[in-house]
């Protein structure tokens, strides 16, 4: 979680910045304030925790950014049935996209195939919508994380996100490793602790399609 102390004056309104939940235990009032700031900034997408999808839909109030429901995030440790239930409800609540945290324990245990197989029911649920995969590169390291990303793409993901909001900081090295492994075709969102314009610019130059910036970076409000 970021402290929220450093707003990130990126090229808001371009298609290069997404909003990402980084407030601890936000109230509905705080979510409202964050979404007003996200709309002002003109973000390209907004990721939300699954319980808040319906509220996010209301708060966007016609603003065209897709709502991305985080599934099994941040830890990637949920049971398989509850992960599917979470995705079903998020879609019913109005999510436009799903971002699924792969199980990093399976990947670190040499069971990447099983981690990829867990994406299958979610791929079916999200038919016709974007399925993202969150690959925990800061936790797994660039090489294993890039393997996970490639597995996720093989498993049907349309888009790769480097990290969940608990993994740690995204780096240029991570972006380069994923790009090298999955090629240029798959959109890549650099996520995880982006807190400065220069850092974001480097990630985009290295091959990221977008960067995900914590909500607090838009509203300048520190986490409680």
């Amino acid at each position: 979680m970021t402290s929220g102390a450093t707003p990130v004056p990126l090229r808001y309104g371009s298609d290069q910045v997404e909003g990402w939940p980084d407030l601890v235990a936000p109230t509905r009032g705080e979510l409202g304030a964050a979404f007003r700031a996200l709309r002002r900034a003109g973000v390209a997408a907004v990721a939300v925790d699954p319980a808040e999808v319906a509220l996010a839909r209301q708060l966007l109030d016609g603003f065209p950014a897709p709502v991305v429901a985080l599934i099994s995030a941040p830890l990637g440790a949920m049971t398989s049935g509850s992960r599917v239930a979470q995705a079903e409800l998020a879609l019913a609540d109005g999510a436009d996209e799903l971002a699924v945290a792969m199980d990093p324990s399976l990947v670190r245990s040499g069971k990447l195939g099983r981690a990829v197989a867990e994406l299958s029911p979610l791929r079916r649920l999200a038919a016709g919508r974007t399925l993202r995969v969150i690959c925990h590169l800061a936790l797994l390291g660039p090489d294993l994380g890039a393997e996970a990303a490639a597995g996720g793409v093989d498993g049907g993901a349309d888009l790769v996100m480097t990290n969940s909001h608990f993994d740690g900081e995204v780096t240029v090295e991570q972006v380069v490793a994923v790009r090298r492994r999955v090629g240029q075709r798959i959109p890549l969102v650099a996520s995880g602790g982006v807190a400065a314009t220069s850092q974001a610019a480097q990630l985009l130059l290295a091959g990221a399609t977008r960067v995900a910036v914590g909500w607090s970076g838009f509203c300048g409000e520190p986490s409680p």
Binding site: A25, P50, A51, L75, S82, A85, Q86, L89
Partner: peptide, 14 residues
């Protein structure tokens, strides 16, 4: 765990 930001149906299912 650790955020609790799930709908109750998901918590019960898990």
């Amino acid at each position: 765990f650790p955020l609790g930001l799930d709908r109750w149906e998901v918590k019960a299912r898990e």
